[in-house]
Nucleic acid binder design. Structure first.
Lengths: 140, 140
DNA sequence: TATTGTTATACTCTATAACTATA
DNA sequence: TATAGTTATAGAGTATAACAATA
């Protein structure tokens, strides 16, 4: 029960932290006319060139949702589609140079927004926190 | 620079954790026909009876957005409106018994979903993590 | 006049079902 | 037949601007 309570308090803290960070990401997206999902798409494409279905998988969304999402971002010149040479059914998605620039700027903005709070921790605490978050990010 | 890198790694971990947890919350909401925002509304109303503008403030949304959000939840019998006796312009929002039951069930489901990962930490680590998250949740 | 909330409008996000093209 | 992606459709989420009621 004692152990149960410590987990409960921690769940609460994790959820509050999640909404807090989501708020920051949403604000930064909005300032650049991007939804949270579009922000995330740019982040994912920074180091990947997935097919549509893969991208949907990363986001946990239906592939039909991606068609519209990609359409709108493509219309803005942020990303592009290309048919796979190996399989005529497959469409690959990737950042344009403009999209890459924006993704980089957004990344820096997110860093600037979150760093002050994290810098209040001393280096040892930062290492600890990163280590403690790892298992949560890892496998289920 | 060394210190800068440790912050960078931590920002990345925090953002990844945020999307991970958001995924869990979104799934639990969807299984109960609730958007992430509706889920959050139920959570907020568990221990508050805010006016519409206050609720919008908690969520970081425009008050006009809340009109529709409240309409739909009210139509489902999850919450209700009441005019303030003190100020005829003000509308207070609160959970119905059915809404409170659902909110409680959702809270337990979120706990069940997140607890296993957190239970992999020993009690001392849990206390540490909660303490380390606190400054992030706290004031800017 | 200022504030609270709603409505009208427009656009984005999202899923389901039906479709086309390719394998 | 099965898979990849798009389109059609419908509903929810969101903000801006205009509005009504109250202070």
């Amino acid at each position: 029960m004692t152990s149960g309570d410590s987990v409960t308090a921690l769940v609460d803290a994790v959820v509050r932290n999640t909404f807090q960070v989501t708020g920051v990401l949403t604000r930064i997206g909005a300032e650049n006319d991007l939804s949270l999902t579009q922000l995330r798409v740019l982040g994912i494409l920074r180091d990947r060139r997935p097919r549509v279905t893969e991208l949907a998988g990363f986001l946990g969304l239906d592939k039909s949702t991606l068609s519209g999402l990609i359409d709108r971002a493509e219309r803005r010149g942020l990303l592009a589609r290309e048919k796979s040479p190996d399989d005529g059914r497959v469409v690959e998605v990737f950042l344009t140079p403009a999209g890459r620039d924006l993704a980089q700027r957004l990344y820096e903005e997110v860093h600037r927004a979150l760093a002050p709070a994290l810098e209040r921790l001393d280096p040892e605490q930062r290492t600890q926190l990163a280590a403690l978050l790892e298992p949560l990010v890892g496998p289920g």
